Computed example of a mutant assay.
Amino acid sequence: MLKDTHSSAGSSPVWDELNRAQPDTTQLDNIKTQIDLVLLALESLAGIGSEAMLQAASALNLESKIPDRVTLWRLRQSNPLRKGEGGRKKLDIEEARSLVLISCFLAKQHQELIRRAIDLLEQAAQNDSEPHRTAMLGDYLDAFNNTYLERMEDDRNISTENLTQLAFKLLVDLLFYSSPGGHRRLWLALLDRSQK
Rank of each mutant, 00 (worst) to 15 (best):
K65L: 13
L120D: 01
N61L: 05
L99N: 03
Y148T: 00
K90H: 13
M136N: 02
K90M: 12
E85Q: 08
I114H: 02
L81V: 08
E63T: 14
R76C: 02
I93L: 10
G86L: 09
A135P: 08
S129G: 05
H132K: 09
T71A: 04
D154Y: 01
F144R: 00
L91T: 05
V70S: 14
S64N: 09
S58L: 11
L113K: 09
R151L: 04
S159F: 04
G138E: 04
I93M: 13
A143F: 02
S159D: 08
A125K: 15
N162F: 08
E63K: 14
K83Q: 14
N79A: 06
S98M: 07
M152P: 00
G87E: 05
E112M: 09
Q165R: 12
Y148K: 00
F105G: 01
R88S: 07
E130C: 10
C104H: 02
D139P: 04
R74I: 11
K89A: 12
F144H: 01
Y140K: 07
L113S: 03
G87Y: 01
L113R: 08
N61S: 12
K90P: 11
I158D: 02
R74T: 12
I158W: 01
L137F: 03
S58T: 12
L113V: 06
Q109E: 09
L81A: 11
E95I: 10
I93W: 05
A107E: 04
S98A: 14
R76H: 12
L106N: 03
A124G: 03
L149G: 01
G84S: 14
G138I: 10
T134E: 11
T134Q: 12
E130I: 06
